[in-house]
Write a protein that binds this DNA or RNA. Structure first.
Length: 505
RNA sequence: GGGCGCGUAGCUCAAUGGAAGAGCAGUGGCCUUUUAAGCCAUUGGUUCUGGGUUCGAGUCCCAGCGCGCUCACCA
């Protein structure tokens, strides 16, 4: 049983009073002839001819101004806001009083009448009939909007607590229209990515979320259990190994947009579940994937924002191709002065880092690849503000990527960066089953047995690959991260409708 | 998980260790073109929770819970 506040008690009483008066506060059906936006457009179209437009509108009461014998209110629907006007001339004093006494901010109502323009010029529905669609018991956590002459809206005492906004996203959405806009943009983004790939003959597929083995990335998984099969299952940490099995099956171009789950820390750019796009493209290599990536992101950016230049946290990012390309060892040399090519094993590289940067503290047990990753995130990443591809990665942190011909320490892999963080990751896929098996074994050896990030040996994946996998390029991107960039949000929580939060009790 | 910060009315916020307040929302009234409507009156509090110090705690101390920022892990 809920504890009601005094404000809620009053509204509950109104519900009883309405029922006692034979009015159902939650009627089953509603109807409308126009959205708020359509009503305004319809009125503007015939205003000059003096023709009358009748309309029935539905929406939520967001502002109310009663002047005794007349009442102005604003209702809000999915399309926007519109003013309504109730007057004793049309409906009588009793009805005006009823509206004022029994209806509250937040209630959903249906209003019928004639469109008009008030003395101050606002297009308004003059109401002849009104009814309740759904009574709000709890007041929406917002005060008032002030609309300035130039149209800018100042919200007074808006819902601002980040915790409340995330926990009660329904209230946040109801009260902050720009939040609805953010999620519309997010939907546009996903649609744009899908359209782009569909147009290029990529087949959208769905692969298991519940997996008997996890793989395809370095992350700790969520573990669950299937009762009937009596076996532990993992929530996938990537789609990679399943999508590549499909290439063995002669599906040449596949992609999936879906949820990944990683049992890691939560931060402004990490949520335990997040949306990933992966595609695999037979007969392509990482350079072709690179080219398609910049086209795809620019396309999505343009569809979402109308341009390929967006402002992110005060910086203008230009996603139009081609993006800057930096070969990784060269990039690290440029910013840190350390030539990773001069050190073929982890110990040597570690000593070089400690000598040049005694204050930096990489883990001394790190592999060469992990040390390079350290240099990368320490020195290079923060400088990658404009969209940039970093390419040619160390082999030992890339167990699923194909080696660069003639360079045993390096694989054909790139990552896309923007605003200083990683956006996507791609490589020429390893399709040699014997090399792949060797990599799994190396990964098992390089990480401690209790390191949950180690890639488990996936025998079925190797079995698939032994049937022959075409050479191909593969790609993965955090869709939430791109959504952050395109909506200028600092935190991933702001582009997730229901971000992960600790239990309230 | 570590460090720092925050938690007061439905919302946004005040309150030197000394009487818990304001605006909006709510309630009652006045008001026939308002728009943060206005005017008059008025209701509303486990100051996150539990301990402690003190004559006295919203304020200081300890512990817990939640959130934010940040570092680490990771996309």
């Amino acid at each position: 049983m809920a504890d009601y506040t005094s404000l809620e008690e009053i509204r509950l009483q109104k519900v009883e009073q309405l029922r006692a008066a034979g009015i159902e506060p939650y009627p089953t059906r509603a109807q409308r002839t126009h959205t708020s936006k359509e009503a305004v457009a319809a009125f503007e179209a015939v205003e000059k001819d003096g023709k009358e437009i009748q309309a029935t509108l539905t929406g939520r009461i967001r502002a109310m101004r009663s002047k005794g014998k007349l009442t102005f209110a604003h209702i809000e629907d999915g399309a926007g806001r519109i003013q309504i006007f109730l007057r004793i001339n049309e409906i009588g004093q009793e009805q005006v009083d009823f509206f004022n006494k029994k209806f509250d901010l937040g209630d959903f109502i249906e209003v019928s009448g004639v469109l008009m323009r008030t003395r101050t010029g606002e297009i308004t529905l003059l109401v002849y009939e009104f009814s309740l669609l759904a009574k709000a018991i709890s007041p929406l956590p917002a005060a008032k909007d002030e609309v300035l002459e130039d149209g800018t809206v100042i919200r007074h005492a808006a819902l601002e607590q980040p915790e409340l906004r995330a926990r009660q996203r329904y209230a946040d959405l109801a009260v902050n229209p720009e939040v609805r806009e953010t999620f519309r943009k997010r939907a546009l983004l996903v649609k744009a990515l899908r359209d782009f790939l569909d147009e290029r003959d990529f087949l959208e597929v769905e692969t298991p979320i519940l997996q008997p083995l996890y793989g395809g990335a370095a992350a700790r998984p969520f573990v669950t259990h299937h009762n009937e099969l009596d076996q532990d299952m993992y929530l996938r940490i990537s789609f990679e190994l399943y999508l590549k099995r499909l290439l063995v099956g002669n599906l040449e171009r596949v992609y999936e947009i879906g949820r990944d789950f990683r049992n890691e820390g939560v931060s402004y750019k990490h949520n335990p579940e997040f949306t990933q796009l992966e595609f695999y493209w037979a007969y392509a290599d990482y350079l072709q994937v690179m080219e398609m990536t910049e086209q795809m992101v620019a396309y999505a950016c343009e569809k979402v924002t109308g341009t390929t230049r967006v402002t992110y946290q005060g910086e203008e990012l230009d996603f139009s191709p081609p993006w800057k390309r930096i070969q990784m060892s060269q990039g690290i040399l440029d910013v840190s002065g350390i030539d990773i090519n001069a050190y073929e094993d982890g110990d040597a590289l570690f000593r070089a880092i400690k000598e040049k940067y005694p204050e930096k503290t990489p883990d001394p047990k790190s592999t060469r690849g992990k040390l390079i990753d350290f240099l990368l995130s320490e020195f290079l990443e923060p400088t990658l503000i404009q969209p940039t591809f970093l390419y040619d990665y160390p082999r030992d942190i890339s167990p699923l990527a194909k080696s660069k011909p003639g360079d045993p320490l390096t694989v054909e892999r790139f990552e896309g960066y923007a605003a200083g963080f990683e956006l996507c990751n791609a490589f020429t896929e390893l399709n040699d089953p014997l090399d792949q098996e060797q990599r799994f074994i190396e990964m098992g050896r390089d990480y401690d047995a209790d390191d949950e990030e180690q890639h488990p040996m996936d025998e079925d994946y190797l079995r698939a690959m032994r049937y022959g996998m075409p050479p191909c390029g593969g790609f993965g991107m955090g869709v939430d991260r791109l959504a952050m960039l395109l909506t200028d949000k600092h935190s991933i929580r702001d582009v997730l409708l229901f971000p992960a939060l600790r239990n309230e009790e």
